[in-house]
Design a binder for these strands. Structure first.
Lengths: 268, 268
DNA sequence: CTTAGTAGG
DNA sequence: CCTAATAAG
């Protein structure tokens, strides 16, 4: 059994002041993939340095205060790789990969994009390069007899069920036809599986991000853009997948909620 | 009788959230000179627009969020002048003057300066130009039979009694020998009077600014840099002068405290 | 330490 | 609306 969580913390230093530390102390996850850490390792608050019981790999962006991904694991990784052999993106705090026994885990923070700007073109370049990487990753893993799980903020909602207001967002970054088609290729051509959708094929959401603007969270006007995407054999061992939406009992310490999947993996 | 207050609000929008509005509602001042407003008039919170019972003149800096002075008066000014005919400084939100019957009131925010930087040179240029203005102002006022009061954050402590730690600050901006000498010229050559010091010749302080860093406020480790400076005849009518240091009963809504002087001016 | 602007989200 | 870097104080 392995429990994997993905969460965009929207600034780990701010999150730490609002409840992330307590959430971390209580989680039963074995591996946690973080996005938008927005901190150099040296800038982390003491409570997040030398985390007891966790092995950590931090992959900050070259630009201070931007992006940044990390993976926390209870087991020590046998290998750690920052980036995906991309000249443009390896230094941008958007991808880090670790190897655990029989399993490769990656934390991904795909650019957000903004229609009509250079940042949308950057997103598209990232998507093109990253799809190549996903294919290679799967081929390599198959050759090694390994499974793969890519956790992250993909910044794309795949289908109308994945966001509250799909009609109004057809020309918005994150739900553009070309972005949705790209995600289809991740599934249909590269052969990956979105495990939350696999276990909950018919429901709307569950959303994992709600804008801080307006009453988006209270109205559950969200998007499902934080995805746990795995190789098919691993997906078939997924026995639970959920979004940990904050409620009156749990503080909201990010505009995203943790997404968690449990796999009967390595069990006898 | 006229009551005049000078206070550096350190961002009127932040101050408004912390108690400035309540202070303003309770004050008995007739004229209030503000410095470091740091807001365009259009950006002011509603509570500070069309202030009931006050005439207001706002002189923001050309650069948003920087400097900015204002004068609030219960009587309507007969004349309002932004700047002091300085090509360099008239647009920098550092000086505004109003005329009331028999009295010119000015709000001044002298540059803070920082030793060894261009900003110290800017401060020195300001001082040179402003001293010329002070002389003209006094000459003009004398010809018109008017008194003058220049309220503001002068960003200079005159003597050892005017700051907690004068020995350690002899090479610090705000207590440099040339700055202190300049203030002496304002008094001795241009003929103005610092009314708080006139009424309290022997005491240390009263300080009007305490850094937000460390425990400066709790230790009363402050500076007396907010001054009410007047023509001699007006000074001789000053019957009270004080600093309104925040205590357990009053919120601290700025790193500066209001300085208030009461003049038996216009009384029969 | 605090303010406000700014870029990114 | 929120985070963090930055400049100024």
């Amino acid at each position: 059994m392995i429990v994997v969580t993905s969460v965009n913390v929207n600034g780990i230093r701010a999150a730490a002041k609002k409840g992330f530390i307590e959430w971390l102390a209580a989680t039963e996850a074995d591996v946690i993939c973080l996005q938008e850490v927005r901190s150099e390792p040296e800038q982390l608050p003491v409570e997040l340095r030398d985390l007891d019981g966790w092995h950590t790999v931090w992959a900050p962006a070259a630009t201070k205060g931007r992006a940044g991904v990390a993976v926390l694991s209870r087991q020590e990784p046998s290998r750690t790789t920052v980036g995906f052999e991309s000249a443009e993106f390896d230094n941008s705090g958007r991808y880090v990969e670790i190897d655990l026994p029989g399993l490769t885990v990656a934390s991904l923070y795909l650019p957000s994009g903004e229609v009509g700007t250079e940042r949308q073109e950057e997103k598209e370049r990232f998507m093109a390069e990253f799809l190549v990487h996903l294919r290679k990753l799967r081929t390599r893993a198959a050759a090694d007899g390994r499974e793969v799980v890519v956790c992250g903020d993909w910044n794309i909602a795949h289908r109308p069920e994945d966001l509250k207001n799909w009609k109004a967002n057809q020309k918005a970054a994150g739900f553009l036809p070309e972005e949705r088609a790209w995600l289809s290729r991740v599934y249909d051509e590269a052969g990956y599986v979105d495990v939350v959708r696999r276990l909950h094929p018919d429901r709307t959401g569950p959303y994992s991000w709600w804008s801080y603007r307006g009453r988006a969270f209270d109205n559950d006007s969200g998007w499902r853009i934080d995805l746990i995407v795995t190789t098919p054999d691993l997906a078939s061992t997924c026995i639970e997948a959920r979004v940990e939406r904050a409620d009156s009992h749990a503080e909201r310490w990010s505009d995203h909620a943790p997404v968690t999947a449990e796999f009967a993996f390595g069990d006898n």
